[in-house]
Structures are given as structure tokens and as C-alpha cells.
Design a protein around this nucleic acid. Sequence first.
DNA 1: CTTAAACTTCTACATGATGTAGAAAGTGTT
DNA 2: AACACTTTCTACATCATGTAGAAGTTTAAG
Lengths: 124, 124
Amino acid sequence: MATLGDLERAVMDLLWKHQEAITANTLRDLLSQRTSEDNVESRPLAVTTVLTVLSRLEKKGLVERERASRPHRYRAVTSREEHTAELMLEVLGSAPDREAVLARFIGTVSAGEAQTLRELLGRS
Amino acid sequence: MATLGDLERAVMDLLWKHQEAITANTLRDLLSQRTSEDNVESRPLAVTTVLTVLSRLEKKGLVERERASRPHRYRAVTSREEHTAELMLEVLGSAPDREAVLARFIGTVSAGEAQTLRELLGRS
DNA sequence: CTTAAACTTCTACATGATGTAGAAAGTGTT
DNA sequence: AACACTTTCTACATCATGTAGAAGTTTAAG
């Protein structure tokens, strides 16, 4: 229940970037500009496509919409950091070897991040 | 490229549990016993099914096989902890807000684990 | 209030991943 | 050579996702 497709991901990234709730049309426009170096010019998405994706994201609990405003406005339910942290937790899982996994994990973060983590954890 | 299906997952769990490389047949037998409370009795998987899954896992780089021994023997390429830690890294991503994500993440682990983390990180 | 424009929901299809396994091909053994 | 066992090919069902037209609903004019 965790992984998002490319388009879903792109939509979430945009929603996370906007604190305000935005409409499907706005999203479609923003998505059009997102033509990375690789992508060689492709006609913009249909609004219905964006709407479909938004519905699916809503069903997944990642997005909520303001049905009140006429063109519905959508916003991310949780912040990007929150969502990512949750995902990490989900991956970490409830196995009995959580600490072993954490040990490996810690070994991979950069020195700077390790320092940040120390500060976050406070002195023992 | 991260998520595994249920069967793939079950196979990996078994391979991770066995330090020694094992055959597809052995795996099929082990998988048969894994009839959780919910699962109401279902005929065991065909060996070819297990082999197919193993091939896919091999292609994904999670499994390697000893082609030497006649019934090929399979083993996990990395340990479970290593794999999970890698997945967590992948989820954490290379975004600029890594630290923010880590902060959230740290906030969720248990006190005991936080202590473990402090020890792993060493004194500042 | 009647319509057309705008918006939302339904329905649909293509593609790729995964579960599942029979058919076909390969290999080692008497 | 013929058989038993193993591996590889081929195949299909299902589900998630990308994509969007068709149909239904709501709003804004006129």
C-alpha cells in the first residue's frame, strides 16, 4: 500500500510544495511544465487524468479535497517529511531484528546527518 | 524496483532464514507449511511456480543460485537487515529535506531503540 | 428558467508486475 | 535408448497505474 506510480508521485510532490489546496486544472498546468530534460515534449495531460489520479490518491488517504469550493481543491493530508518518515517506519517493519536494521541504516547516512541525528536524540 | 509481492516476500523470508542455499523443492515444502490462520487449506504450490519466482528475484538481484549443484540451490544475496536498510535509504531518498525526514523518523522509534541509536552513533 | 460552459464521475483500455502452472526442453541414470 | 527429474518457455489471470473519452451534474449566463 506504499508505493506510488510516477504520475501519482509527481502529483504528490506538487501538492506537498503547495501549502494551499489547489485545483486539478492548476495541477495539470504545473505538471505540463515539469518536462524534465529527458521528456521530449508531450502534449499535456487531460484534466480527467489528473482527476483520476487525485481520486486514487484520495482513496489511499494521501489526499483530501475541499468539495465545498466549486472546482474542488486538493491538498496533501500529511507533509512530505511525515509521509516519508511513515514509509520508512513501514519498511523498517515490526520484525524482531529492528535494531539490526537500524544499525545498518545508521552506517549509511552521511557524517553530517549522523551529527544531526545525535543532536536530535539528545545526550544519553 | 523495491516492492515485493506476497509470494516473493515469503520466499525471501525463507531464504533469509536459511544461511545455506536451498533448492526450489525445499522451498516449496517450506512454503506449504506457512499456512497462516487465515489461509484455509490450499494445495501446495507447483515447483515451477517457485522456480519462476526465484528467477524473478534473481533478475532483481536479490537472489543468486548455484548452478553447479544439480537441483540448483538458491540463497539471498544480502541479509535481511542489509536489504531493509537499503530500502529505507531508498525511501529516505536524496531530497534536500532528508534531515527533516530523519527528524520525524527519530521521533517515532521507541525509547529503547533511541538509546541503541545513540550508542551506535557514538558520543558527539 | 433554459442552456451552454465547466466540472466531476464512470467506464474503458493499455501496460507492466505478480501469482500460478502446464508444455517443452535439457540432463543424468540405468 | 528410455525414463525420471530439473529447468526454461510460454501463457494466462489479476491488480495497479497511466491515460482519457463518455456521460452525468453544477454553475453561470442570458
